[in-house]
């Protein structure tokens, strides 16, 4: 195993070569907020929350898709980054209909966690109040598009881990939404194995098990990492 040494927030970090800055920071105990990242599936680089400053480049780099390099100097929590992160979380809240008090994921929501982490207590942007609808046609699960942040974790987990590719993204820009099957009701998608991985992958309350009510969606987000490790490395315990 070859190793790479770098500096994160002035702290010397040694990590396996080829890892991402995000993984290296996690190993070193430096938390970088993320939303579209999920252990066990590929990276999208879409939420931009994990952007960090790297010395020598004027561009901000998404830590989840930036590979560590020897001698790299990374700053993860400068005031500018914190400002931008807060603004992104505000945009998320303003874009959908995120009403924590009546949400299945209340208390167990990554968007909520991110808001707390970046200190967002109100949004400076006007709420859009979109009418996105929901799909309850599946016998076990439901999807409420109003709570979707388009992180595409469900898309990737279904495609990469379950191999069913039930989900994809339709339309563009603000009108983007998660489609099931050939843009048909979820319950009619024959490819769906009802495995529930998308429920666990969903960072918010957008995809949920039927019958859960406010604050009851606990989620098991480490399950995917466990599944991948079990398959790839034959590690059957966790």
């Amino acid at each position: 195993m070859s190793i790479t040494t770098l500096k994160i927030n002035g702290q010397d970090v040694v990590t396996e070569s080829g890892k991402t800055v995000l993984a290296a920071a996690k190993e070193a105990g430096i938390p970088i907020p993320t939303l579209c990242h999920l252990e066990g599936i590929s990276e999208a680089g879409a939420c931009r929350l994990c952007a960090v400053e790297v010395k020598g480049t004027p561009k901000l780099m998404a830590a989840c898709v930036t590979t560590v390099a020897e001698g790299m100097e990374v700053e993860t929590h400068t005031p500018k980054l914190q400002d931008y992160r807060r603004m992104i979380v505000e945009l998320f809240f303003a874009e959908g209909n995120h009403v924590c008090s009546i949400c299945v994921a209340n208390g167990n929501c990554e968007l909520q966690d991110a808001a707390i982490e970046v200190g967002m207590d109100h949004s400076r942007f006007n709420y859009r109040f979109p009418d996105r609808g929901m799909d309850l046609s599946h016998s076990q699960f439901g999807i409420d598009h109003n709570r979707c942040i388009l992180c595409t974790r469900c898309v990737r987990v279904c495609d990469e881990i379950e191999g069913a590719h039930v989900w994809d993204v339709g339309n563009r820009g603000e009108a983007c939404y998660i489609v099931s099957g050939m843009d048909q009701p979820w319950g009619e998608v024959s490819a769906c194995t009802a495995c529930g991985k998308c429920v666990d992958a969903c960072p918010t309350g957008a995809i949920f098990r039927k019958g859960t009510t406010t604050g009851e969606k606990a989620g098991d987000r480490a399950k995917l990492e466990f599944l991948v490790n079990a398959r790839d490395k034959q590690e059957w315990s966790r």
Binding site: C47, F92, E95, V169, E174
Partner: peptide
């Protein structure tokens, strides 16, 4: 619509 700054930022 993939990344948030562009998708939601331009709308705002």
């Amino acid at each position: 619509g993939k990344c948030v700054p562009c998708r939601a930022g331009t709308v705002q």
